[in-house]
Amino acid sequence: MSRETSTIQRRKERLDRGIKVRTEGLYALTSWREMFYLLVPRTLLIFGLLLSPFFLEMYWQRVLCQAGIYALLALGFDFLAEYVGLVCLGGAFFIGSGAYLSGLLNAKLGWAPFFTIPIATVAGAVISTLVLLPCLRLRGIYFAIISFMFPLLTVYIIIALNIFGGTEGITALATFPNIWVDQYLILGGVIIALFALRRLVTEDIGLILRSIKDNDQAVKASGISITSYKTKAVFIAALLGCFGGAYLSHLYGWVGISQFALDYSILPIAATVMGGMGTLVGPVIGAFILTPLSEALRGFGQMRVVVYCLILIGFIVYKPEGLMNVLQRKYHQFEHWEEV
């Protein structure tokens, strides 16, 4: 009885301010405050990305373009891993096939980048999907294994058969007219891809894909071919990667086996895990954090891969929810101490 007065107990209370806004989109139109509340993070992201070129030096503008490519790959990885249940360890394969296709079209047929990029994006995605198709019928780790093997094997094949320019690659490709085109092409791509994917995962197809991840048998018993939906999902992810690859080949005017390099497979994964799996925004932000970091480590050779992996393991073991989930929670809920 006397304890009541002796100590004042405190407990942490958590309020969720956005719950109404987030559950029913329609209510957001009822008040300016709620609309503002919803719009701020989105506008911040979009304008942040679009305005960033003005504040960067030439060198970092290039890095920004790189980061955009990684962001696309990370988006694709997150989409496949979290919404379809396919772990893709071979983002480099998407980059490589997009890059080589647009490189070949440009070098052999002399087409301009604004033709080669769309064609290489679609054709590259078709090829990547076809190659991965045989393992889509299987559950479990097959997709991870196969997607890990193919970029590396493709490199061996290119070197061994000395096709597509062998180890030299294809040089002297057309580049974009100026660095502004470079930047806004990829930034636009990232923003469109991000919001399109966010839309997609809430549409019926997204729902079906998530059901496949959760309970594929019930989906089969509902008369839906899970292979065809998985194929569609892989195609979508491949589109993003191949666009990145095709863009990359014209960014540097050069295509080579280093476009199958491990960086394109591992950095997007690290970015996704760091940014928060399943958020789609997180991976983009992760990519824009990790790429400059890896640029800074460029002088240390393979150091950057080791660093990505350490970050990756650190997050996956100790903070598996990632940055974005934490940030979202902090934004939507505020905690305060209440005296009891």
Binding site: S211, D214, Q217, K220, S222, I226
Partner: peptide, 30 residues
């Protein structure tokens, strides 16, 4: 299985795993 279901022979499962985080009616979207 999906072809058989497509012909009109369908089944329930003993172990149900509905899509937990969605409203009940969204489970029928599949």
């Amino acid at each position: 299985p999906h072809k058989i279901a497509d012909l009109g022979v369908t089944r329930t499962f003993q172990i149900m795993r509905p899509y937990h985080s969605l409203p009940a009616f969204k489970n029928l979207i599949v």
